[in-house]
């Protein structure tokens, strides 16, 4: 059995949510649909911080090492002096590392988001349920 509550106003939605949680409803039973995320909603629902940040960090570090490593590897592959500069010329290679930090970081952040938010969802893409501009609370199972 599931219950659905729809609200036009953000304040009413937040009040009802507080009431449900206060009455002992498990946040795992609750599914929310919102036109925008009201301030403080994550704290209220006891959500832990998003893991997207680890994807960002991983992507950025990988990008930096790849850029620096790739530029150094290709220079050592065939050591050829150009412009009178050292074979391993750090400043330009750091620049490649910096650029790939941003590229890999952004791609990994986006990939991490898709993974964590479980998107794209074929089920929701083929037959999405519409909630309009209302704030909706769906409660699965019995409420105390």
């Amino acid at each position: 059995m599931s219950q659905r509550f729809s609200f036009e106003q953000e304040q009413d939605f937040m009040d009802k949510l507080r009431e449900l949680l206060h009455s002992g409803t498990d946040p795992k039973q609750i599914e929310l649909h919102m036109p925008y995320p009201p301030h403080g909603i994550e704290e209220l629902m006891g959500e832990k911080e998003s893991w997207v940040r680890f994807f960002s960090l991983g992507g950025a570090v990988t990008g930096f090492l790849t850029g620096l490593g790739f530029a150094s590897f290709t220079a050592l592959w065939w050591p050829l002096i150009t412009g009178g500069k050292p074979i391993l010329s750090l400043p330009p290679y750091l620049l490649i590392g910096y650029i790939l930090t941003i590229l890999f970081g952004a791609l990994a952040t986006f990939g991490g988001f898709l993974l964590l938010a479980r998107m794209p969802s074929v089920k929701r893409m083929t037959g999405p349920e519409q909630f309009g501009n209302e704030f909706v609370i769906e409660v699965e199972g019995e409420t105390p």
Binding site: E31, L32, M34, P37, E42, E47, V52, A117, M119, F131
Partner: peptide, 12 residues
């Protein structure tokens, strides 16, 4: 991509 404005989606 199946966006429905759920808490999980908004959080990430």
């Amino acid at each position: 991509l199946g966006w429905q404005g759920t808490l999980r989606q908004w959080k990430h």
